[in-house]
Amino acid sequence: MTDFEALLRLLARARVEFIIVGGAAATVHGSSRLTQDLDIVYRRSTENLHQLAEALSPYHPYLRGAPVGLPFRLDAETLQRGLNFTLVTDLGDLDLLGEIAGGGNFEALLGHAQPVEVYGAQCYVLGLERLIEVKRAAGRPKDFEAIAELEKILEARESG
């Protein structure tokens, strides 16, 4: 199980700059669908890479699905060399995304994000409209039901 509360508190406490996207963002907006992991788009500044790596390292981040024993250490250098990381941690599954298809990077998404307080943690979540656009742009059949639900939520919101 992914402990969303602990992960969000941890990242916020460490002052990591990130935007909640994916299924967790859909949950914030009211989706009733089950999601297994926390997807975040993180700012790729040097300071943020250090903060992110330091915050996660006590929780044994490891590449999800990688063979046991594969050498992997999540530090700022590793983050700098890569872009998107699908991780398993002691707190659950966490996807660190440097950018997302159809949405771009942290800076590109920030203007479409909303501040939200979750479990006392101040975070940003991708706005509902942009979340729909990004999921549509990805064009994955597995997202069709999720997009339909998000558009229903948007319609409900707009009709008051």
Partner: peptide, 18 residues
Amino acid sequence: MARSKITLPPDPVIEAYK
């Protein structure tokens, strides 16, 4: 901060799923 209003036209596949 977030923009309002969806900018994409209705997608017939998504409309069916709705």
